[in-house]
Amino acid sequence: MAEQIDMRSVFIQELASMMDADPRILIVDADLAKAMGTLGLYGGYRERIINVGIAEQNMICVAAGLAAYGYIPVTGTFASFASRRVCDQIAISVAFAKNNVKMFGADPGITAQLNGATHMANEDIGTLRSIPGLVICEPCDAASLRAAMREIIYADAPVYVRLNRKAAPPVYQDNTPFRLDEAVVLREGRDVTLYAGGIEVAEALKAAETLSAEGVRAEVLDVHTIKPLDVDTVVASARKTGAAVTCENHNVVGGLGAAVCQALAAHCPIPLEFIGVQDHAGEASPIDYLIKKYHMTASDIVDAAKKAISRKQIHT
C-alpha cells in the first residue's frame, strides 16, 4: 500500500538511514531544524550537524567547503531562502566550483500557505534553472521522495530539491523504481498531455479522470526533475497527443512550463497551456483557497486541456 505519511518524515527517515551507513553525510542547518525535522536527528548525530544560525549564504558556502573536504552536506531551509537568498552562492561556490551540496527547500509555492508572500517561493526554479550543472527536482509524494533520496544524495552533481513537508495524496506505490533523469508516464492517453510537477501531479490525475468521463484521453506525466529535463519522454508524449498543459506550483515564468515549452519548441511545437502562478507575488492563505484563487485546481486543468485541444484543431 502507498504510504499516508508526511513527506518531512520520509525525508528524515531516509536521511537518518543513509547517515547510519555513510559517515560522509552531514547536515548543515540555518535555524530551521525544527521546521525541516532535522532537529530530531540532533541527539543521535550531534557532531555531524552544523547549525550556522540565521545565515543562509554562510550555510551554502560552509556546505560547499565541507563538500570540498569529501563530505556530502545536506542543507535545509525554506525554498525562498534556499534559492533567491543564496543564488550567487549556489552559482559559484556550489555549481561552478563543483561542490556537490544537496539543498532542500521546504514549502515550495503555495504550500507555504500562512507564511505568506515572503516565504512563498514561486520563483525558486526560475531563479536556479539557468545555473549550469545544477539538478532541480520535486518528488510529488512520500513513496517517490523515499525512492528519490538515495539518487539525490549520491548524484554526482549538486541538487536542489523542492520539499513539500506535508502529507501528499499518494501517487506511487511503495518501492516504485525512481530515476532522477526519467519523467514518469503515470497515465497513458492520446488526446492531450498533462505535464505536472509537485502538488499539481495529483490535480492533473484528477483532471484526467474528469476528462476521461467526457471522452478525452489525457496522458499524465510526473516531470519530477525539471533540470535536466527528460526531453525524450516529454517530446514523445507531445508527438503522441499533439496538445498539452503544463501544471506547476510555481510562477509560469521560468519554471516547468518554460522548460517544457523550450523542449517542445525545439522538437515538437504543439499548442500549450500553462497552469501555475500567473506572474504575481504570493500571499498568506490556506492552500485550498490559494489553489482555487490561482486557478491551479483539477477543474482549471480540465478547462486548459480543452483549450489546448481546441487550438490543436485550429492548427491542423
Binding site: 552544523i50 549564504q57 554562510n58 551554502i60 558556502c61 560552509v62 556546505a63 560547499a64 567547503g65 565541507l66 563538500a67 570540498a68 573536504y69 569529501g70 563530505y71 552536506p73 550567487d88 552562492q89 559559484i92 561556490s93 561552478f96 566550483a97 561542490n99
Partner: peptide
C-alpha cells in the same frame, strides 16, 4: 583549493573546510 571571485564566499567555504578538517 577553492574557487573564489565572488567576494565573501571563499571565507565561508574556508570555514567549511576547517570544520571538515
Amino acid at each position: 583549493d577553492m574557487t573564489t571571485g565572488s567576494l565573501g564566499q571563499g571565507f565561508s567555504c574556508a570555514v567549511g573546510l576547517a570544520i571538515g578538517s
